[in-house]
Amino acid sequence: MQDFFELIVSGFASGCLYSLMGLSFLLVMRPTGVVNFAVGQYAMLGGFAAVAVMTTILIPPIALPYVPGLLVVLALMALLGAAVEWIAVKPLVDRGAPPVASMLSLLGVLIVLLEVGARFGGTEALPTEPPFGFRRVEFGPFAGTPQSLFTIAVTLVIFAAVWLFFERTLWGRAFEAVSLDRRAAQLMGVNLRLVTVSAFASSAVVAGLVGVLISGTTGAYYQVGMALTVQGFTALVVGGVGRVDGALLGGVLLGLLEALVMRYLPVSSSMTLAVPLVVLLAFLVLRPHGLLANRGGH
């Protein structure tokens, strides 16, 4: 039983990272219909950016404490997200291209970001100082590390804030209106440009946050993006495409499932990353709308 309760905590913490990646997908997908597979590279760059501004490793003169450093990284990520939209998406949309054209150009962005990351950060895993350590902490039957609890707490706060924004504010409703019917929303005075740029910027911020969290646990690493992309997309499909609460549910379930499968099923541990792919396929075939049904829209 000890193993089980330890797994719950570590699976939940991993799952939170998948949820955030799913949210990063979702923020762009809802208003624009574009699936941006470059979000994993945002996470990679966010990690390196954290190393750059919080430690002396990449840019020696700059070493900010955690909170100001985090804010600087997130601001940089917002700029990156907006720039990506401006360079790779806007020109296509302006010419009336369908979302799939943007998805293809964003695949090009993926390659570019990967190269930029490898050039800037190198190919070694680089660390940031985690705000909390990895010593075992026990609470009731559960056991985890302060850092895993920090990850869980940050994730829950982010999801609560995003959910409140979408469900409880006029601006959030405007985003939702755009996702339901771009043309009608525009005719109601909703600025599509502002919504689209905000969507891309916030998506990059959320993925960049994942990168910062990971830089403190396992290090910023140039190859971290692909796995996170698969895991985040799976979280989204499992939970229900198009729903904020679905991304959280899907990511956490995936994290727990991965951990439990690895521990208790007689499969090779090298298959860990196959778990999300199998789950993804199963859901796409058997329950394409995910666990939580989509609420109307297209």
Binding site: L170, R173, A174, E176, A177, A184, M188, G189, R295, G297
Partner: peptide, 20 residues
């Protein structure tokens, strides 16, 4: 062209967007 998937009041609220 109502926004399906949003409540009736939320639909009306979108119209208020410009004044918000």
């Amino acid at each position: 062209m109502a926004f399906k998937g949003m409540s009736l009041v939320d639909n009306v609220l979108i119209g208020a967007h410009r004044r918000f």
